[in-house]
Design a protein around this nucleic acid. Sequence first.
DNA 1: ACTAATTTCGGGTACGTACCCGTAAATATA
DNA 2: TATATTTACGGGTACGTACCCGAAATTAGT
Lengths: 352, 352
Amino acid sequence: MEKNSTYFGVKEIARRANVSIATVDRVIHNRTGVSEKTKKKINEIIKELDYQPNILASRLASKNIIILAVLIPRVSEETDFWEVPLRGIQRADAEIKQYGIQTIPYFFDLSDKDSFVTQARLILERGVHGVMLSPSFIEQARNFTEECQKLKIPYVFIDSNIPEQRSLSYIGPHLLKSGYVGAKLLTYRMKSNKKVLVVNISKEIENYNYLQIEEGFRSYFNDNQMGNEIVRIDIKETDYLSVAKHMTSVLHDHTDIEAIFVTNSRVFTVATFLKNKNKNNISLIGYDFIKENIQYLNEGIIDFLICHKPEEQAYRAVMALYQTLVMGGSVDNIQYMPIDIITKENYEFYQN
Amino acid sequence: MEKNSTYFGVKEIARRANVSIATVDRVIHNRTGVSEKTKKKINEIIKELDYQPNILASRLASKNIIILAVLIPRVSEETDFWEVPLRGIQRADAEIKQYGIQTIPYFFDLSDKDSFVTQARLILERGVHGVMLSPSFIEQARNFTEECQKLKIPYVFIDSNIPEQRSLSYIGPHLLKSGYVGAKLLTYRMKSNKKVLVVNISKEIENYNYLQIEEGFRSYFNDNQMGNEIVRIDIKETDYLSVAKHMTSVLHDHTDIEAIFVTNSRVFTVATFLKNKNKNNISLIGYDFIKENIQYLNEGIIDFLICHKPEEQAYRAVMALYQTLVMGGSVDNIQYMPIDIITKENYEFYQN
DNA sequence: ACTAATTTCGGGTACGTACCCGTAAATATA
DNA sequence: TATATTTACGGGTACGTACCCGAAATTAGT
């Protein structure tokens, strides 16, 4: 069957306005070389006809390649977590490349602030149409996004937010609520009101994410007037030996800890420790659907994983830029990701 | 920046084969009117250049509107569950309509097999390029999909599968595993080895879905050698009074039931009953993220909801047909949906 | 050998937009 | 008033494909 015969495009607007399609094109794209009178007339007709541009024709005709920069941590031997958002970026790229959009990744080292600054500068020098970034270093990310603001380059945050920056969107978890959920999950496994241990394993100590998650975790205990004492340790060296040393020490000092909550994806190093020490009576909860964690989940060492769909975050972030730059569509300023609960029984169908 | 200068399209193939673009077009689309010799030569060049059609140009040029039929239950006063997949269909339609694809819904009455048969016949009479359907009536669905097979119309199942039919894809839950997860969740709430009640609420008794879910539920108890007795009731009238009557009777006969598992989205009627009778000591688990269930989850009457993203199922089903009919891409034959665990703490971010 | 029918193939247009180059009209300057 | 410059606008092509209509070549029948 034939196409919709009530579609009105540039030609019809030109016909009704008694101008050429080139003139209409200039108005649509806010180019110069049109008198105010003519512009007004064309805009009225655009509104009246509710003109919807044909994106196929538009992108086919356009010689302009749209560049999106992606600024995320490099996959390292510490954790392969960032492989997952990279897959989301690749999936989005496969979908939108046909529209003449190119996504270029810029990787920084999570333990090197300067690498973030360097990559950010490369992006600004290159000149891009949009940016998606994980603001792992808040101060440096703020500086960079202020620069983007000046250049009118839209940017999207994933993984964590900087609320006071005027991003196009934040696509990531509500970290407080995530910690809250972690606490609730712990209650399913606890049999008494013994101590609970919160573990932060990160070289970056005052990390915004972990602080938020822990705050949410603690507020659950407060809200529900639970008498458990919450012990907290920060482990600045992320290698196994260091984690084992700290864990041995804290479990020696607090023999009545019956549950452990790790605030990030490094829960697998604590799992390794508990397995090595045959501590089967301690419940363990942590974050992220990466293969080390899945293995311990399956073995029953980790009871729950909490996941925020990092692949989907990155995919949606790229698509949000596409939506605003190509489709001219609006985008929600905050898209909180679901707080997914993964167990031994349901993990095999989980999709990041 | 300029477009990729190494792209080879129909024109270059025509140039190299010493034929016109019309001849190349006939080969690409397997139309008649090309000699075998010429066809062979063109296909060799297509292979050599690894020709990737430009979908923008292709769909812009094509006058052919692709019709996708969607055959799902009508939203009824019994349950508004099917509003959710409808949103997924609408979301997919918004994305692909610009490619000249039209999705047309055909609704049937879940309590009337003949309405399914009628709508199926309308689809066949109309002539369509692809079908997405919920095979709620297995025999009738089988007859319909065999007809589609004969006419080489690809079809995709959502919500449940008919494995022996050669569908393009099944996009839905692994029902056995879903029941299994339900059983495990129940163990988080149970304090003893008392009785467990499984409730089926449906006019359609031998429903494939419920049977599979219950089988999975029971197999968890078997696998873990749990001594709980499992009581089962089928409630054929779905109105509240009927459910209340059955529940009153079964709880009277088995005063030591401490947990209830409802195999579909009608868990809210059991929740209403428990609330009305002030039975706070009984744990309750059921299915689907619909507003009645969310309300009881928030009140703590329902402990967990298990959800299979029905909106996403429908969205992916339509996109699978698009992928195969327009993009010529391959599609996984089975895409199991995640088995999502929803609690009072994480429900507010859940996305169907 | 001639005519009719069929097959193979090509020319050209359409799809809807982006945008380059050129022209006419308006404005500024000498 | 004449000339130079600037502004407003239009003609036409490109993007890459789908496909309609017509011509030439081939094949079949008398």
